[in-house]
């Protein structure tokens, strides 16, 4: 079962790309291998009548028809891919205007940890690498960086955004199931990059609000 709305979107689009890629590869590779096997040099094979002769310009060959066919077939595939992508782009890049209270967090990347700030100002320091969110709600994250260029990604959610100093990027998702997921930095940011991990803790709505209400405003 898909763990989030973005993963559903990604899986269907990735599927479309993969099926078309496999189909195209099969056609092109069969053609390549067939030609190599069929027209390899054998005692019985015929000498081509247009073999280039030293000192003479080789005879020009090739039909525009072949180019037209190649380009039109490719264009059809590519247009399908573009249309598929555009739908997903609109969805991913249009964060919901209104999210529930307690569902819009600030994410600040540091060398080498993640700091999360909740709407009521809570900024847990001892559990700073843990992001708690309720299941079944739209979650909006404002991602920025305190020092260098990082990239905030949630493994399994198939979502990512750069954490850039002086700039805030918005990312959103809708978790389908509770559980723990890994948050990771995806841009080489220094010696601690490999260990710059966090946890996305998707909690039931009741558990989340109990925790959220218990937090003290600093």
């Amino acid at each position: 079962m898909a763990v989030s709305s973005t993963q559903v979107q990604f899986d269907s689009l990735f599927g479309l790309f993969t099926y078309l890629a496999i189909a195209v590869s099969i056609i092109v590779f069969s053609l390549l291998i067939y030609f190599i096997v069929k027209y390899r040099d054998r005692p019985s094979s015929r000498q081509p009548n247009d073999t280039p002769i030293l000192g003479k310009l080789p005879r020009s060959r090739g039909h525009a028809k072949s180019v037209v066919v190649t380009v039109s077939l490719s264009t059809i595939i590519l247009v399908v891919l573009i249309i598929g992508s555009f739908g997903a782009i609109d969805n991913i890049l249009t964060p919901p205007q209104h999210v529930c209270p307690g569902c819009a967090m600030e994410v600040t990347a540091h060398q080498f940890y993640w700091q999360f700030t909740y709407p009521n100002g809570t900024k847990p320091y001892d559990t700073r690498d843990i992001l708690r969110v309720p299941v079944g709600e739209n979650i909006r994250l404002n991602v920025t960086s305190a020092d260098v260029f990082h990239d905030f990604g949630i493994i399994g959610y198939d979502i990512k955004t750069d954490a850039i100093p002086g700039r805030t990027n918005v990312v959103w998702f809708y978790p389908h199931t509770t559980g723990n997921f890994t948050i990771q930095c995806f841009e080489l940011c220094g010696v601690g990059h490999a260990t710059m991990k966090g946890t996305l803790m998707v909690m039931s709505q009741a558990a989340y609000s109990a925790w959220y209400d218990s937090t003290v405003v600093h």
Binding site: F10, L13, F14, F17, L81, G84, S85, I159, F186
Partner: peptide, 21 residues
Amino acid sequence: IVGGITGVFLASVALDYALRG
């Protein structure tokens, strides 16, 4: 051919959101 076809995956921003990095 393999490298080129997988390059098309990365051209789609929606997939790039997961595949970047």
